[in-house]
């Protein structure tokens, strides 16, 4: 096996017997957690990482077939847990990483003792008797847009992150260097994210789970969050005052408080 720590650009900080693993969603990288993870360093060993294809991960480890399903990403999370010898840790997943956490927790019992799912969706596309928030046509349009509008996107998602291996630390000028992904990988990740359907996996979650739902989240609406919380045995949900899809950035204090209350 390739070096998992380097492959996923895993960063471990903090102190404590238990670990808290933060997994970023589609669009960004571990910087998503920069306002949240440090708050737990006193009581937890904090683990942040980049999914393969994002941020400072090893792009050469990107395999089209493996990462065409969320299980491929869940395998990586399990490998990180195994490599670090995690037991009964807290998994905090944002957006699509919520479902990656659900899969990883089932795959490696004992590694993750609690799940925090921020802005989760078990399925983005509407289905009979289910509201996902997007029609199949709209998701097709998104993927088509990604295919046809490559240049418009690549202006932002620049072909390659320059010198990404030594990502500048907090405070340094970063000018648009976050959230840049190889356009082909971004397209593939969008496809696996927005066409996933993990509704059946929710019933199999056997650890305490907290859903953090934003107000006015156009990516994962409250109805979608409620479905996740309701379908997970003993799942709880907190609706945050924060708006948008990234409360970990826009309202870190609210997110920190909710996680702290849940894990203590």
């Amino acid at each position: 096996m390739a070096n998992v720590i380097e492959r996923n650009n895993v960063q471990v900080r903090g102190a404590g017997d238990r670990a808290m693993v933060f997994a970023h969603g589609f669009g960004c990288d571990q910087n998503m957690w920069r306002f949240v993870a440090p708050a737990f360093e006193k009581d937890f060993m904090t683990v942040v990482f980049d999914h393969v294809g994002a941020g400072g991960s090893d792009l050469s480890a990107y395999e089209r077939a493996k990462y065409s399903t969320l299980s491929g990403y869940a395998d990586d999370v399990v490998e990180i847990g195994t490599e670090l010898g995690l037991k009964d840790s807290v998994f905090v997943g944002h957006s699509v990483s919520s479902m990656i956490g659900v899969l990883a927790a089932r795959q490696a019992p004992g590694t993750f003792g609690k799940l925090v799912l921020i802005g989760p969706s078990a399925r983005y596309i509407d289905d009979e008797g289910y509201v996902g928030g997007f029609s199949a046509k709209q998701i097709d349009e998104l993927l088509e847009f990604l295919e046809s509008n490559h240049m418009g996107w690549s202006a932002q998602m620049a072909p390659m992150i320059m010198g990404n291996s030594d990502r500048p630390d907090l405070g340094q000028e970063l000018t648009n260097s976050f959230c840049r992904t190889d356009p082909d990988i971004a397209k593939a990740f969008a496809r696996v994210t927005f066409t996933s359907d993990n509704r059946k996996d929710l019933a199999e979650v056997s650890v305490p789970t907290l859903v953090l739902q934003c107000s006015e989240d156009i990516i994962a609406s409250q109805e979608v969050g409620e479905f996740v919380a309701r379908s997970i045995p003993g799942g709880r949900m907190i609706v945050l005052n924060a708006t948008g899809h990234c409360p970990n950035l826009s309202a870190p204090d609210e997110v920190i408080a909710a996680i702290r209350a849940f894990v203590s």
Partner: peptide, 9 residues
């Protein structure tokens, strides 16, 4: 929501 807003923040 997934790219621009996080970057701005």
């Amino acid at each position: 929501e997934t790219h621009i807003a996080p970057l701005l923040r």
